[in-house]
Design a binder for these strands. Structure first.
Lengths: 130, 130
DNA sequence: CAAGATTGACGCTTCAATCTTA
DNA sequence: TAAGATTGAAGCGTCAATCTTG
């Protein structure tokens, strides 16, 4: 079972890499930023939501900044903190990547299961994660 | 759902690392070797069964050989090929690691689900992997 | 001193190129 | 020439140590 989930994640990651040159972690970060009002989030919060250590997030944001997808800004209220802000280019790339990703998820996962199966899976999985 | 499976795998990996200084990939390799008659397998076959590129397997076996857990032997029938053979120490470590791993799987996964849920999960997951 | 974030160094993984034998 | 396996170099992810601000 873990084998299958690893393979699934691997394929999904390969597609993002191939079409948009994004790692799964990059994509996760873009998802969270795009989801926020103002498209911005504190580094520590962003790290937490994507289940990464802060040091890892620093590298991830480094890469996104270099490609002009994200800006780093000092936090206005607390000068120790930094915020990551999605640029227009970043948002545009995210929307394209999201299409790729959703298509892949549908093809590899959703289309292979009935609605009933999906419902059961969700229930069972909730028990594991709790 | 992928989040949960990633977390699960991460915790399982951390336990193997902490108690036996093994990566998941190391453990996967030991499982396959221990499972074979003669505790030996050709490199290419071992790579395939644990879903790793051959180059990755080379590194993995390098580490295991250095720790005396595995021996590398030239294949008797085809001198191009190499075989990995589990040593007594390797088998002993594997048995201990297996206990750790099984305990963790039970604790984090099996104990959280009813038999009925497990059965359903197996059915659903088979559809995804197919 | 504590909190937020970054950096240096290391380990794991993988690709492309290479070496060896068939 | 092809098949089996290994190696060099590069990227990703992480820990411990460090820098900066509160």
């Amino acid at each position: 079972m873990l084998r299958t989930s690893v393979q699934l994640r691997r394929v999904l990651g390969d597609e993002l890499r191939e079409h948009h040159d994004l790692s799964m972690a990059d994509y996760d970060a873009l998802v969270q930023l795009a989801d926020q009002p103002g498209h911005r989030l504190r580094m520590a919060e962003l790290a937490e939501t994507i289940l990464q250590p802060r040091s890892s997030l620093t590298r991830i944001v480094d890469g996104l900044v270099q490609r002009g997808l994200v800006l780093r800004e000092r936090s206005s209220d607390d000068a120790r903190g930094a915020e990551a802000v999605l640029t227009d280019a970043g948002l545009a790339l995210f929307r394209r990547a999201q299409r790729t990703h959703h298509d892949a998820v549908r093809r590899l996962f959703l289309d292979r299961l009935t609605d009933d199966q999906l419902q059961r899976l969700a229930d069972v999985w909730r028990a594991v994660g709790a």
